[in-house]
Simulated assay, not measured.
Amino acid sequence: MQYIVMDLEWNQSPKGRPMQDRGLTFEIIEIGALKLNEKMEIIGEFQELVKPQLYPKIHEIIQEMVRIAPEELAAARTFPEVVKDFFAWCGDDFRFCTWGTMDLPELQKNMDFYGVENSFPIPLYYYDIQKLFSICFDDGKSRVSLETAVEQLELEKKTKFHRAKADCYYTALILELLDWKKAGRLVSVDYHRLPAAREEEIYLVFPDYSKYVSREFDSKEEALQDKRVASATCYLCRKALRKKIKWFSPNGKNYYCLAQCPEHGFLQGKIRMKKSDSGKTFAVKTLKLIPAERAALLRVKQQEVREKRKIKNQERRQRQKNENEE
């Protein structure tokens, strides 16, 4: 397998996002990529500007970052022409590597907008080098800019950032330094195209947690009523578990639960409710083994949510009582 380190530059409307309802907020104006072999050696490169059709005037903030001359973009080829050659250059057996999670969804949104056939597999796995940098060199949770990562690793800055080819170069340098025994299994999942049916839903097991990606639902309430979404399973022995703490939400978006495996101990469940491009809801659920101390903290968090809800209900009843008395 080969690795395609890809970076995109894009433009948007100077007045905001008037075309968002048409499915394209950001229009790609440059595609850059490096091809790496299994030894993480660079064996090819791709770089081409894209002539903007929807947003021909470059947003001033974008122009300040990328510094592409308008006449260069005016002379460039259109997105369908460029992306066709890009895919031909990629070949057949490869995995995308990007800094962060935005490039692949935006690439596919541009493909949808311009009617370019999407032949990517579902699910589409890729390596998020920003996340892997955090896991290998930082706390595993923080997400820093590419330039900050380069500075932390004390890599030489040979060219300016915020151009596609340059950012690919720096991303490839970091990719080569990763501990691939640790990072190689930690693939990310692209959410642009989601499972269409229950049997297509995604379930992944990593060294210290599991991830499940559901199909779409009309609402988060419908999603939470689904047995597979609401279930808790030990990812080590695959036993279905009874929950010690049922799903609750501190903020109405993320939901938590606590389950206990007789063999492996406490597991914390987390569901992140996300909106799909179609406006529907899908769930991303993770389950992770936690020590008894963190299980106790989860009980405290649940109790705090209950107390806040109790106070709000009391205040609501008091307001209703006052309104009735008036």
Rank of each mutant, 00 (worst) to 15 (best):
K109G: 04
R306I: 08
K310G: 00
Q320T: 06
T98A: 03
F86H: 07
L173C: 13
K157C: 06
V83Q: 03
S276K: 06
E293N: 03
Y191W: 11
E9V: 05
H59S: 08
I311G: 02
K158D: 09
S231Y: 03
A183R: 12
H162G: 06
F282D: 11
E199F: 13
Q320W: 15
R309T: 09
A172Y: 14
K165D: 14
Q2C: 14
V5T: 03
G184V: 12
H59I: 06
V300D: 13
I135P: 03
I28T: 06
D139I: 04
Y256P: 05
L289A: 12
K308V: 04
V187M: 02
I31V: 14
L49I: 08
A33L: 04
A164C: 05
F206D: 09
Y170V: 08
R163L: 10
V82W: 00
C237T: 02
L241K: 02
Q268M: 15
I122T: 13
A166N: 10
F46S: 02
K308T: 01
L289S: 11
C136S: 15
K220D: 08
A75G: 07
I62G: 03
F96C: 08
S188E: 07
E27D: 07
K310H: 09
L54M: 11
K220A: 10
L224V: 05
V284G: 05
K57N: 07
K109L: 13
E293W: 05
D179V: 10
E221V: 06
T25G: 08
N324K: 15
L298F: 06
E323F: 10
D93A: 11
A283T: 12
Q47V: 08
A232H: 01
K131C: 05
F113Y: 13
E326K: 15
I28M: 04
F94Q: 06
T233A: 02
E326P: 00
Y169I: 14
M40T: 05
S214T: 04
H59Q: 07
L287C: 07
E263D: 11
L258I: 08
D139P: 09
R163K: 14
W10V: 12
A149D: 05
W247E: 00
G23N: 06
L34G: 05
V5P: 03
L155M: 15
Q152M: 14
E154F: 04
R198P: 00
F248N: 07
L107G: 02
T78P: 00
A295F: 10
I31N: 01
M273P: 01
S214H: 02
K181Y: 11
K211F: 00
L204D: 07
E323W: 11
D277R: 13
V300E: 15
S231H: 01
C261R: 00
F94I: 06
A74M: 10
K321I: 05
I202H: 12
K244P: 01
P56F: 10
Q152K: 15
G184N: 10
E60C: 06
F113E: 04
E48M: 08
K227H: 02
S210H: 09
M102E: 11
K253D: 09
N37I: 13
N110T: 12
T171M: 11
A240S: 01
C237H: 01
